[in-house]
C-alpha cells in the first residue's frame, strides 16, 4: 500500500470501518511512513476534540411530553384500518347481503317479469324449469308462474318461502341492533386512562370509547396501562416503598433485575428513569451505571462504554468503578476482534 492509497482509506480507518485485511496493510504502511502516521494522529486528535464537546441535552420536561404523547397514541384505537373499521363493516355487509337478497327476490317475483323478458332485472327472465340462482329449497316458489302464485296465495304460504324470508330478516334484524346494546353495556365501565405525565390529557371522548370495544382491545389496553409512562413496570410490580434515600423504587427494581441478569427489563426501567429524572438528580449516576450494566449484559458494548465514559467523566465517586468497567469492555472488544470471523 502506498501513501495515496493510505490517504484514500484514512477516513475509513479513523472511524474503524476498514476490513481486517485492509486495516493490517494500512497499519503496516503507517509504521514505515512517518508523514502518514502524523496525518492520522492529527485527525485522531481532531476527532477526539469533537467527541470531548459537551452538548446540551433535551430537558426532562420535553422527554416526558414525548412519552406522554406515545402513551396516548398507543392507547388510541387503530382507526379506520383497525378493528373499528371491521366493526363498522359487519353491519354494512349484513345490510348489503340482506338488501341485495330482498331486491333480487322482489325482482324475480315482480308481476309481468317473466313476460317482459328484457325488462327483468336479470335481462332474461328465467324460464319455467330453468335452475334459479337460489338454494334448492327456495327454487320452487321462483319457478312458479304468476297464475300458480296467485292461486297459491290464499292457501297457506309455501313452506320454503315463508320459512326462508322471515328467517333472513330476523337474522338481519337480530344482527343490526346488536352492536348498540353491547356498546352501551360496556360504556359505563371504562377503564381509567393511565396518568402518563404532566401533560397527559383526560380520557378521550365518545370516539375513543366506542373504538375501545373492539375485540381484544381491552386486554391490550390493560397491558398498555401496565407499561405506560409513569406507571410501574407491569411485572413484577415494583417494591411498594422507595429505598432509604428516598430514591425511586424503580431504581432498586432495576438494580435487582441486573442482579437477576434480566437485562432487557432492567434496560427498560433505567431508560425510563433516564428519560424522566432531571439531569442533576442525585440518583443519576446509579441510573447511568444500571443502564450501562444492562447494555453490557445485552452485548451492546459500544453503548455501554459510552455510558461508563460519561459516568467516569461526570461523577468522580464513580470514576474508578467506571474505568475498571471500561478496561474490562476494552479487553472484551479486543478478544472479539482477535477471534476469527465466523462462517
Amino acid at each position: 500500500m502506498n501513501c495515496r492509497e493510505v490517504q484514500d482509506h484514512l477516513v475509513d480507518h479513523l472511524y474503524g470501518e476498514l476490513d481486517q485485511d485492509l486495516a493490517q496493510r494500512l497499519q503496516a504502511h503507517l509504521e514505515s511512513c512517518p508523514s502518514c502516521m502524523e496525518e492520522l494522529e492529527a485527525l485522531l486528535k481532531v476527532k477526539g476534540l469533537l467527541l470531548s464537546r459537551k452538548d446540551p441535552v433535551p430537558s426532562s420536561l420535553l422527554t416526558q411530553r414525548i412519552l406522554a404523547h406515545a402513551g396516548e397514541e398507543i392507547s388510541r384505537p387503530k382507526g379506520l384500518w383497525g378493528l373499528g373499521w371491521l366493526r363498522a363493516a359487519v353491519p354494512v355487509c349484513f345490510l348489503l347481503v340482506v338488501g341485495g337478497w330482498i331486491l333480487l327476490y322482489q325482482g324475480w317475483h315482480r308481476p309481468g317479469q317473466e313476460e317482459s323478458g328484457p325488462g327483468s332485472s336479470r335481462g332474461v327472465a328465467p324460464q319455467a324449469g330453468e335452475p334459479a340462482l337460489m338454494p334448492d329449497h327456495e327454487a320452487p316458489p321462483q319457478s312458479l308462474t304468476r297464475e300458480e302464485k296467485t292461486q297459491a296465495l290464499p292457501a297457506p304460504p309455501p313452506l320454503p318461502d315463508s320459512a326462508a324470508k322471515p328467517s333472513l330478516k330476523d337474522k338481519a334484524m337480530a344482527a343490526l341492533p346488536s352492536p348498540p346494546p353491547q356498546e352501551t353495556s360496556r360504556l359505563p365501565a371504562p377503564q381509567p386512562r393511565p396518568q402518563v405525565g404532566p401533560h397527559s390529557q383526560p380520557p378521550g371522548g365518545a370516539e375513543g370509547q366506542q373504538q375501545e370495544m373492539a375485540v381484544g382491545k381491552e386486554s391490550r389496553r390493560q397491558k398498555v396501562q401496565g407499561m405506560g409512562a409513569g406507571a410501574p413496570v407491569a411485572s413484577p410490580p415494583p417494591e411498594p416503598s422507595g429505598d432509604k434515600e428516598g430514591l425511586p423504587s424503580e431504581l432498586s427494581m432495576g438494580e435487582k433485575l441486573i442482579g437477576e441478569k434480566d437485562f432487557t427489563r432492567a434496560e427498560e426501567i433505567f431508560s425510563r428513569l433516564i428519560n424522566t429524572l432531571p439531569p442533576g438528580h442525585a440518583s443519576m449516576p446509579r441510573v447511568l451505571l444500571g443502564l450501562a450494566q444492562a447494555r453490557e449484559g445485552l452485548g451492546e458494548l459500544g453503548e455501554a462504554s459510552a455510558l461508563y465514559q460519561r459516568l467516569a467523566g461526570d461523577w468522580p465517586e464513580y470514576r474508578e468503578l467506571a474505568l475498571e468497567k471500561l478496561r474490562v469492555l476494552e479487553q472484551l472488544r479486543r478478544s472479539k476482534m482477535t477471534q476469527p470471523p465466523g462462517p
Binding site: D55, I66, I74, G228, F270, S271, N275
Partner: peptide
C-alpha cells in the same frame, strides 16, 4: 407492537 416500555428505551438511546 405498542409496547410503551420499548419506546422508553428508544427515547433513552436516541434523545441525546
Amino acid at each position: 407492537r405498542d409496547e410503551h416500555g420499548a419506546f422508553e428505551v428508544l427515547l433513552a438511546r436516541y434523545r441525546e
